[in-house]
Structure formats: structure tokens, C-alpha cells
């Protein structure tokens, strides 16, 4: 009986196996690349806003505190997007004729809210509370990046669970003293781990509990 497969079939099978392995690795790499890509996590992409509000001007330039506008950040889960009244507190006097501020004046006149485009959006199955992070010494820039240098606001971190866990597993690497939480120029000191461990103890951070699923998925 003649052989079913010709000799050349060996080459085909080997090539098939090799190319399958290659394909799997390539696809894995592509998937990993996409996972880190701004196309998927929209990191570092400034989005258009009704008013080209610049944190660089207000925070970096004017040295305003985060809490002037985000008033509920230290007392509630939501930091708060300022109402038009907050803008108008200064802009009833400053840059009153600037075309870029027209939406603010219209909103003030008509009582219609300004529709800002959301930058940081956690999935609805994640429980997050700003106030507890502030109270325990997580600084604004730890998650929001160099906000004082952003002309248009972008997402500075990918907000993946792995990213959250970096701090939930080892908060001592990130915690700051209470008076530095809103300091946009804060840099970790040389003895950060030592300082961080002190803050973990001082602020009663129960590190073991921070990686419980139900801490964030409740």
C-alpha cells in the first residue's frame, strides 16, 4: 500500500506547528501591547472640553489648592466638579470678554450646566472613595499625575486593577505626610519606605485587609 502522506507533508506539519506557536506568541504580544495602549485605556490622551480649562494655569501658575474647586474631595467619595458659580467667583471680574469663556458666562446666565468630558472613569463594579485615600495620606498626584503641568487634562494612570494593587499591597511606597497630600510638587524622599511604614502605622492602615476582594468590589 502506498504511503498516505508524501514526504513533503513532514515539512508542512512542522511549518504548521511552528507557525501556530509563532502566531500564538505574536497574538499574545499584540494583546499585551493593546492592554498597555492608550487606544484601550485612554491614558495620556487629552480630551476636548467645552472650555479649554488649564490646570497648568490655575494650579501650576496661580498656585491654587485642589480643594478650592474640588471641595468634597476630603469629605466624600466624589471629589466634585465645580459648579459654574466657582468659575464665576473669579471670572465675573477676570477675562470677562474672552471668547473661550463664553460657555461659562452662558451657563451662568441661563442656569444650564457645563458638560465637561469625564477623564477618570472607574468601572461601576469598583467601589472608590476619595476621602479615605486623602485621610490615609495618598496624594492627588499619585493617581492624577503632574496635574499642575497639564494644559488639557488627561488620564495619567491606566487605572487597571494591577495598578491599584501596587499601592494596596505596599502602601508604604506611596503614602505622604498629611500636609503634603495636596502638594503637587511633592517628591518621595530618600527614606520613603521608612517614612511610609511610619505613616501606615500612624494612619492605622490595615495593609492585609487592602487586598481583600470586597474592599473594592462590594
Amino acid at each position: 500500500m502506498a504511503q498516505v502522506f508524501p514526504r513533503s507533508a513532514n515539512v508542512l506539519v512542522r511549518a504548521g506547528i511552528a507557525s501556530s506557536v509563532l502566531l500564538v506568541s505574536v497574538l499574545t504580544l499584540v494583546a499585551a501591547g493593546m492592554y498597555q495602549s492608550p487606544l484601550v485605556n485612554s491614558m495620556k490622551i487629552a480630551k476636548a472640553q467645552p472650555i479649554p480649562f488649564s490646570h497648568q494655569r490655575h494650579v501650576g501658575g496661580n498656585g491654587m489648592d485642589c480643594r478650592y474647586c474640588h471641595t468634597s474631595v476630603d469629605s466624600s467619595n466624589f471629589a466634585g466638579v465645580p459648579p459654574t458659580e466657582t468659575c464665576m467667583t473669579c471670572h465675573s471680574q477676570i477675562l470677562t470678554d474672552a471668547p473661550m469663556l463664553q460657555p461659562v458666562h452662558e451657563s451662568w446666565k441661563n442656569g444650564t450646566p457645563i458638560e465637561w468630558t469625564r477623564i477618570y472613569d472607574l468601572p461601576d463594579f469598583v467601589y472608590f472613595d476619595h476621602s479615605v485615600h486623602i485621610a490615609k495620606g495618598v496624594g492627588c498626584t499619585t493617581c492624577h499625575g503632574a496635574i499642575d503641568q497639564m494644559r488639557l487634562t488627561h488620564k495619567a494612570t491606566n487605572l487597571y486593577m494591577g495598578w491599584c494593587l501596587q499601592c494596596h499591597r505596599a502602601p508604604e511606597k506611596f503614602l505622604r505626610p498629611q500636609d503634603k497630600v495636596f502638594d503637587v510638587e511633592w517628591k518621595a524622599p530618600r527614606n520613603q519606605i521608612e517614612e511610609g511604614l511610619r505613616l501606615v502605622k500612624e494612619n492605622n492602615v490595615n495593609v492585609g485587609q487592602l487586598t481583600n476582594c470586597s474592599i473594592c468590589h462590594r
Binding site: 508542512l12 511549518a15 507557525s19 501556530s20 500564538v24 497574538l27 484601550v40
Partner: peptide, 25 residues
């Protein structure tokens, strides 16, 4: 057929990868 074998293998791999990628996304 050898050609049949390899092509089926590819399709399975492709389908699995596509599923993984969709899950990742």
C-alpha cells in the same frame, strides 16, 4: 489531508486567541 489538518489547527488557535483578546479588552 495535510492541508486540511494545518488549516483546522490554525482556525482553532485563531479562535482561541480572538476569544482571549476580546476577554482582555
Amino acid at each position: 489531508n495535510a492541508a486540511e489538518f494545518t488549516s483546522q489547527g490554525h482556525w482553532r488557535t485563531l479562535a482561541a486567541c480572538a476569544a482571549c483578546m476580546l476577554a482582555l479588552m
